[in-house]
Design a binder for these strands. Structure first.
Lengths: 239, 239
DNA sequence: TAGTGGTCTAGACCACTGG
DNA sequence: CAGTGGTCTAGACCACTAG
């Protein structure tokens, strides 16, 4: 692990523990240089990480302030499960249990072929899973993955976390994801599996996930019960 | 403007112009060091910007590849208006025209007071605007701003872009925003102004926008017609 | 093994904030 | 004005990819 990441971890811990209380200033960067025996560029990089996480805010001439974002958890939102991948992409697959509804191999439609950047005749997995959070049917997940990139996918894996399998077993690493979020009416499928009424809206999170070599590994549409899941994130100006 | 930003702009332009075509490699960093007469750290910083924008992807040992994300625009999504603030926060206020429905000064509810981090007795503007995109009523925006931070707000400003006023006239700069997105049923207000039926869902984008000194400047809830607006963004792993 | 990007340094200058 | 963070350099070493 890079030095700047270690330093960021230490400072983050100190903030959480209250050693650097909210609305006070962090030690200045030259002091941190001394304490961590690092160059200022390295300290700056560590602080940038914390800035992107919304923990601190630096201003030229004024120092680096510790922010108070405690109210984020007291949100009125239905349930803030989704998070950005600032820390780790695998959090997407974080839930209690899954029920596999469909698991088959097929040729992709033109749309899916394009999103996964596939050549002709390349088969994909088509997976539909019901995600059950705290015993409540919450998300209906339609997933497509190229068979060539994900050998050995089984029902067992699907019942757990796909991403744990991709990371731990196949040792794949991710570059990021492209997402589109929209509201939609509940279709018959949603109504059947999410136990919702025809008038209940659905929050659809559509995403393409990329490996660190730029190859798409997944296209999915997650249809969330509107009263169960929201999508929460921080959008920090980078500089 | 910092040197690394200028370099990023130049490289971005070359990518758009096709001088660095998709799926080819950028010149390596030592070559770029020579061309731009900069240090490698500066070149790296420029490339990081482009990485965050999804334009390129670097891999240790393999070079920096130009990505092809042309299909993002051919999305099946209803309309991708919203974007992250990677480039500029003001884009949030980018729309054709507005109709002011409510514009008053009031004391905040406890919830809004907390989100705007206000002391007691501090009044806020309460603004409700209908945003009309291409002649169609698309978004109903409920906005709260501290009066003390935004002097001189007028109907004229509201009819245009609030953010242009904040930036150009008041010279405020922004640190970022916290957002929560969820689906909801259309309430009577939505039905009246967005011309939608009771069964039509609504996409609600809730946000708190912060100034660069950490002070919240706005709390808002934007209620979008589900068939008019989605929320589209890139989530890139940072390192 | 050659070539790439990732990290790190020690120092420097500058822009900005706030008393 | 003193003190802060933002930028930038010239060089170094290392981890990784790909032939």
């Amino acid at each position: 692990m890079p030095k700047y990441e270690e330093i960021a971890n230490i400072i983050r811990q100190r903030i959480r523990q209250g050693r650097y209380p909210a609305n006070t200033l962090l030690p200045n960067q030259t002091d941190l240089v001394q304490e961590f025996d690092a160059s200022r560029m390295t300290i700056k990089k560590a602080i940038t990480i914390l800035t992107m996480e919304g923990l601190v805010l630096s201003r030229r001439g004024a120092g680096t302030k510790v922010l108070d974002h405690s109210f984020w958890n007291k949100s009125t939102a239905p349930a803030d499960q989704y998070r950005g991948m600032s820390r780790d992409l695998a959090d997407i697959g974080k839930t209690l249990s899954s029920k596999v509804i469909t698991f088959e191999v097929t040729f992709p439609t033109p749309e899916i072929k394009e999103r996964l950047m596939l050549a002709d005749q390349q088969p994909v997995y088509k997976i539909i899973r019901l995600r059950i959070i705290d015993g409540v049917n919450s998300v209906l997940e339609h997933t497509y993955m190229p068979v060539s990139l994900v050998p050995g996918l089984t029902d067992d894996v699907l019942a757990q976390s796909i991403y744990t399998y991709l990371k731990e077993t196949l040792h794949l690493t991710f570059a990021g994801a492209f997402r589109n979020i929209q509201a939609d009416k509940a279709d018959e499928y949603d109504q059947q599996y999410l136990d919702c009424a025809p008038i209940d809206p659905v929050l659809e999170v559509e995403q393409v996930v990329y490996l660190d070599n730029g190859q798409p590994i997944e296209y999915s549409r997650s249809r969330n019960r509107y009263d169960r899941r929201g999508y929460t994130f921080l959008d920090v100006k980078n500089t």
